[in-house]
C-alpha cells in the first residue's frame, strides 16, 4: 500500500490509543485528587496529583505558559479541550479523524462512521457540560469510544497491510504509555518510606493499576497486597496482560514479521531484539538495573524502532 496511507493508518490508531491513555491518566488523577495525599517534597508543584499528566506527557512548560496555577479546571481545559496542545483529547481525536478521513478508501465505512461520530459528539462538549455530566463519565466515554473503534477495526477490517499498520500503531503507542506511567509513578510519586505499605501507597499503586485497566488482573494473578515489585512485573513482563510491555512488543514483533514478507528487514530484527529481552527477562534483573533506567532504555529502543519503521515503510526516501 501507499506509504502515506500506511502512515495515516499507523497514526490514526496511535492517536485513538493515546486519547484513551490520556483519558485513563486524567481519570486516575482526578480520583487521586479526591483522596488525601502527601507529597515527597512539600511545596513542589509537580508532586501534586494534578501535576501527574504534565510529568507523564512532558508538557509542564506548555501548561505554565498558558496557566498560572495548577487546578483541576486548568488541567482539564489543557488536556481535554485545548486544540493547541497536541496531546489534548481534542487534538488527538481530531488528528485521528483527519488520518481516517485521508484513508476513507483503506478503512471500512464502519470504522469511519465510528471515528467521525466520536469527533462530532466531542465537538458538542465544553468544560461546563463535562462537569455537569460528570468528569469520570466523560473519561469513560473516551475509553468506550476507543474500545468501540478498536473493536470495529478488528471486527470489520480486512487482514491486509492496512490492518497490520493500524494494529502496529496501537501496540507501539500502548507500550510507550505503559512504560511512561510506570516510570512516573515510581519516581515522582514515590511516597515517603513511612507510607510504603500504608493506605496512601495502596491507593496510589491501585490507581496506577486502574489507569491501565489492570487492577482486576492484578488481583486475579497475585491474590495479594499490591507491591511495586509485582506491579512492575505485571506491567513489564507478563504476557497475559494486554497492556504490558511484553504483550505489546510480542504483537509488534509478529506484525513486523508479517510485514517483512520473508525479507530480512531491520524493523523486524530490532523488534525481535526488544521482544526477546522482555520474553526472557526477570523482574529481579529489572530492579537491579533500576526500574527507571530500565524503562528509559526501553523507551530509547522503541524510539529507534519507530525510526526504522519510518525509514522502511512509512516515510521511505528512495528518490
Amino acid at each position: 500500500m501507499l506509504s502515506r496511507s500506511a502512515n495515516d493508518l499507523f497514526w490514526m490508531s496511535r492517536h485513538v490509543e493515546r486519547a484513551e491513555n490520556i483519558a485513563r491518566m486524567l481519570d486516575v488523577t482526578y480520583r487521586m485528587s479526591l483522596l488525601p495525599y502527601r507529597v515527597v517534597e512539600i511545596g513542589e508543584k509537580w508532586a501534586e496529583p494534578w501535576a501527574l499528566p504534565l510529568v507523564i506527557t512532558g508538557l509542564a512548560t506548555d501548561f505554565y505558559s498558558r496557566n498560572e496555577t495548577l487546578t483541576a479546571e486548568n488541567m482539564i481545559q489543557f488536556m481535554v479541550f485545548d486544540a493547541g496542545n497536541p496531546s489534548s483529547i481534542h487534538a488527538l481525536l481530531q488528528s485521528a479523524r483527519e488520518n481516517a478521513r485521508g484513508q476513507r478508501g483503506a478503512i471500512t465505512s464502519e470504522m469511519w462512521e465510528s471515528i467521525n461520530s466520536t469527533w462530532i459528539e466531542f465537538r458538542e462538549l465544553d468544560y461546563q457540560r463535562l462537569v455537569a455530566t460528570g468528569i469520570s463519565e466523560f473519561f469513560d466515554w473516551v475509553k468506550t469510544r476507543s474500545h468501540l473503534f478498536r473493536g470495529v477495526t478488528v471486527g470489520t477490517m480486512g487482514r491486509d497491510e492496512g490492518y497490520h499498520f493500524t494494529r502496529l500503531g496501537t501496540h507501539l503507542e500502548r507500550a510507550d504509555n505503559t512504560a511512561r506511567i510506570l516510570d512516573v509513578k515510581y519516581h515522582t510519586l514515590l511516597p515517603t518510606v513511612d507510607d510504603v505499605g500504608g493506605a496512601v501507597d495502596y491507593y496510589q499503586w491501585g490507581s496506577l493499576l486502574r489507569s491501565v485497566g489492570a487492577f482486576e488482573s492484578y488481583r486475579k494473578i497475585y491474590r495479594d497486597a499490591i507491591t511495586p515489585y509485582r506491579v512492575a512485573e505485571l506491567l513489564i513482563l507478563r504476557l497475559d496482560m494486554p497492556r504490558s510491555l511484553h504483550f505489546c512488543m510480542a504483537e509488534v514483533f509478529n506484525i513486523l514479521s508479517e510485514l517483512a514478507h520473508g525479507e530480512r528487514l531491520e524493523p523486524e530484527r530490532l523488534a525481535g531484539e526488544i521482544h526477546s529481552q522482555l520474553h526472557y527477562g526477570r523482574i529481579k534483573n529489572v530492579f537491579e538495573t533500576g526500574l527507571h533506567e530500565y524503562l528509559m532504555a526501553f523507551l530509547d529502543r522503541v524510539d529507534a524502532l519507530n525510526g526504522e519503521i519510518n525509514k522502511q515503510f512509512l516515510v521511505p526516501d528512495y528518490a
Binding site: 501507499l2 502515506r4 478508501g105 497491510e161 512509512l314 528518490a319
Partner: peptide, 22 residues
C-alpha cells in the same frame, strides 16, 4: 489508490508511487 503529489515520483521518465514495499 488515492495519491497526493508527494506519493508519486518520476524515475527514468516513468511514474512510480511510494509504497510500503518499494
Amino acid at each position: 489508490e488515492l495519491v497526493e503529489g508527494l506519493d508519486l515520483m518520476v524515475r527514468d521518465r516513468m511514474v512510480y508511487m511510494r509504497t510500503t514495499r518499494g
